[in-house]
Write a protein that binds this DNA or RNA. Structure first.
Lengths: 117, 117
DNA sequence: CCCTTGCGTTTCGAATATCGAAACGGTTCG
DNA sequence: CGAACCGTTTCGATATTCGAAACGCAAGGG
């Protein structure tokens, strides 16, 4: 069924690949597509602190269903943002850790957003 | 239909409000919910450069349907991230402009992501 | 041994979000 | 008047997500 052992598929946004809503292939557009999928950013967020197993991710993200979680994990893995260690738990790749850092300003913004409520 | 003239509704994430997937109301969770909706980040991205009309937003975001666009515009407006000027065009609020800045590292990351492909 | 517990994972019908195209009302300009 | 543009709404078709159940596997206890 899937000849690609990496788990990638042609619906996973990657830089250099045409993306939903944009045929330019600009990296930011691929990123906005990938992270615009529900729970995508949240899963990333929960992985910042360190490796987390799939079942614990489900507990931490109340309302996330396992089917969608595994869709996201597949996509993020195919995008080289996360990896899976030998005991099955998921963790950010080197690139993914950078992404976590890139998301810090968003966290800071959200706090200002809260104060301005 | 809607008694609130600001256009807000109880499905629009706001800081201090319980959010899909989290009852803690932590600001970042509300943000991740709001921006995890399809086209949400992209619309924000297209507004960074300045005011844009709805019909032009539709052209810039190939694949975005008008119905969803207006859902997003309503949500972002209710969240005080964007505003609408007198001639109908949309622009970032002060808070929204800060958000645009907070998203810059994501753009930088996406480029590194592209290089590491 | 079996039985329970916890894990990562898959399946599939139901609920919801998004698409896609058409239309409405308003304004401007010829 | 009528064509062209605008912001906006509607609604059936399609895609995504939910939600709960189950599978196979490994570890540990009775």
């Amino acid at each position: 069924m899937d000849t690609d052992s990496t788990g990638s598929d042609d619906t996973t946004p990657r830089p250099g690949t045409p993306v939903r809503g944009s045929t330019t292939g600009r990296p930011i557009m691929a990123a906005l597509d990938l992270f615009g999928r529900r729970w995508s950013l949240r899963v990333l967020w929960e992985l910042r602190a360190g490796p987390v197993g799939a079942r614990e991710l489900l507990e931490r993200c109340d309302g996330l269903s396992s089917s969608v979680l595994y869709d996201r994990l597949r996509e993020l893995k195919a995008a080289n943002v996360i990896e899976q260690d030998d005991d099955g738990a998921y963790r950010l790749s080197e690139l993914g850790a950078d992404l976590g850092d890139a998301l810090a300003p968003l966290d800071a913004w959200a706090r200002r957003w809260d104060e301005a409520r």
